[in-house]
Design a protein around this nucleic acid. Structure first.
Lengths: 211, 211
DNA sequence: TAGATTGTTAATCGATTAACAATC
DNA sequence: TAGATTGTTAATCGATTAACAATC
């Protein structure tokens, strides 16, 4: 991945930035003003050079010997990750997992807002979870177009995940966050983030077996 | 990661194997006997050589020109991932996300079994979700010891995630699957699989921004 | 047979880690 | 000042991709 100035942004680095922010938040409450990569690395069992390289992609400048100004560093990460700007999303599938995401309070801190949910089951339509309404899936296309929603979350059973992805693409969704346990196939200009539990579990159990 | 014969197993390869299995399951219903890497790669928008390399770590042998015997390949993946052997887990935190995992039917196909859930809230204790009982957290230690449970799942709020991890380590848990949005710190002989939504979202929204 | 596909070895690519001069 | 820490350039490591002989 490249940023606007054609500097590379690695996916692992991007994934670590929220962790750094988490640590900074905690240390801020301790009243620290400056923070070094060494400190952050110690908190997260990482090595300082990796933290330094990661922070570098946010464009932050530190001072030798002192480190980074904590509040500036937090702001730099927030800005780089776009947390000060709200991303709106629609979610399809209002089962347990969908409801878990709707009820997830951490999203508001990171500029993420699930605007509405959609389902095809009469039992789900009309529900309201954490002030998010569950609407009939037949309205997905028109509402997505009208509200110019760009992010779609799939929390349907695997059987309907690909159909849901197709509907999202047709409706103008540009990025799909997929929690269904199959890899969905979409045109290459569509961004997909797969959240596959079987894949994670494969890693965990294999490590356990080889321990 | 290295297997018993000291051959390397890469984490990305491991994560792709369940996807291959998914595809094979679908193609089996079409009545295919042999399957080639090219076919699998086409289904998943990958390249054949990557599929071949990944399948190689399972120890499966194919025949030039023909490919792999589909049923043998499925069995090899299942065996390699340990799906024919049941891994038992305890889950701590019976909120929406915990309940979503308890209700997740896909786990039984991959040899994963959530035996019981634990919570500290009187409102949750006594519930039964998908035949999984929610017990008082004060019983976690003794039950984990007695039942020799090795896998713990954390679906608590972030405030209690580290305490939960500490309790798990103390109780003899060897591998932790953490869904709380903070990185937990554990002794280095403990396996941790982090499932961080903020991290995934960081990748997704950054790609969207740079599109 | 011809050629698609395998297993394996080599080349490339990208991420992590190391080295080191500059500096507050 | 001394030395901890920064930014940056180089080295290492590991994953992906390419090349190619073997073969059903």
């Amino acid at each position: 991945m490249k940023d606007k100035n054609n500097n590379p942004i690695s996916e692992p680095s991007l994934r670590r930035l929220p962790h750094y922010h988490q640590v900074l938040k905690r240390l801020k409450n301790n009243g620290e003003k400056y923070i070094s990569c060494t400190q952050i690395a110690n908190e997260l069992n990482l090595i300082p050079i990796q933290v330094r390289k990661d922070l570098n992609i946010t464009g932050i400048k530190g001072s030798p010997k002192k480190g980074y100004i904590l509040t500036k560093l937090m702001t730099a990460i927030e800005k780089f990750l776009g947390w000060n700007f709200v991303n709106e999303a629609f979610i399809v599938g209002a089962g347990h997992l969908g409801q878990a995401l709707m009820g997830y309070e951490g999203f508001s801190n990171i500029g993420f807002n699930i605007v509405a949910a959609f389902d095809s089951s009469k039992k789900k339509i009309g529900l309201s979870i954490n002030n998010i309404k569950v609407l009939d899936i037949i309205n997905f296309y028109s509402l997505t177009k009208r509200m110019k929603i760009e992010i779609g979350i799939i929390t349907t059973p695997w059987e309907t995940a690909q159909d849901t992805a197709d509907l999202m693409v047709k409706s103008g969704i540009k990025a799909i966050w997929n929690f269904a346990p199959i890899k969905i196939i979409v045109p290459e200009n569509i961004i997909v983030q797969e959240e596959n539990l079987a894949a994670s579990l494969a890693v965990l159990t294999k490590k356990l077996e080889l321990m």
